[in-house]
Amino acid sequence: MESYLPYFLIFIGVGLIIFLTSLILRATKSKSWEKTSGVLLDKGTRLHISRDIITKNIDWKSIHIDVQYEYEVDGKIYISKRVTFSDMVNKPMSCLNKLLNEYLSTNKIIVYYNPKNHGDSVLFPGATIWNFTPMITGVIFISAGIFLLNS
């Protein structure tokens, strides 16, 4: 019986890379989005803790920036939480502290919003290294699938 695992791994890897590439393209386009002033409603960090179901031991911890802001476009108020297009990537604490302390140290902020969809916004437009690092995972999945096919 032939195993579908190699094909599944390749499929997951390619899907991940396609998703991340589309996110990078959106991040790049956001550099040309319209700007408006906004107000920070809430900012801080949020600790995610994963526990093993059986032993109740902590498997891993991650810290994320937790921000909420509002802005107005054409008389309508929008509320958003996106800081960057790499919010879903775990970053070092030094990077998170820099965002919180240096860039989000005031309540008045600049918000970049999509002119075609005013509810789509970001505080820091453009792609960064953090948009590219998760692609390593996709490459690992593809490589594992190819390795299994060849063995």
Rank of each mutant, 00 (worst) to 15 (best):
58 I>Y: 03
45 T>C: 00
141 F>M: 07
3 S>Y: 03
23 L>M: 10
51 R>A: 07
33 W>G: 01
111 V>Q: 12
51 R>F: 13
36 T>Y: 02
66 D>Y: 10
36 T>K: 02
42 D>S: 08
96 L>H: 05
57 N>D: 14
110 I>W: 07
128 T>K: 03
85 F>M: 08
33 W>S: 03
124 F>R: 08
115 P>Q: 07
77 I>F: 11
135 M>V: 08
132 F>A: 07
122 V>F: 04
140 I>G: 04
32 S>G: 05
106 T>D: 14
135 M>A: 07
50 S>A: 11
34 E>H: 03
87 D>G: 08
67 V>A: 13
37 S>T: 12
97 N>E: 14
96 L>N: 13
110 I>D: 12
20 L>K: 06
66 D>G: 07
30 S>P: 04
71 Y>F: 14
70 E>L: 09
104 L>R: 04
81 K>A: 08
80 S>L: 05
16 L>C: 01
91 K>H: 09
56 K>Y: 00
148 L>M: 15
16 L>H: 15
76 K>P: 02
113 Y>C: 03
59 D>N: 12
94 S>C: 02
134 P>F: 04
79 I>N: 13
13 G>I: 01
117 N>I: 09
60 W>Q: 08
67 V>R: 09
12 I>A: 07
18 I>Y: 13
36 T>C: 09
64 H>F: 11
66 D>C: 04
109 I>Y: 13
94 S>A: 12
130 W>Q: 02
35 K>G: 00
47 L>Y: 03
15 G>N: 03
6 P>Q: 01
133 T>K: 05
15 G>T: 04
22 S>Q: 10
86 S>F: 11
126 G>V: 06
70 E>Y: 07
83 V>W: 01
114 N>S: 10
30 S>V: 00
122 V>I: 12
79 I>V: 15
89 V>K: 09
141 F>D: 06
109 I>D: 14
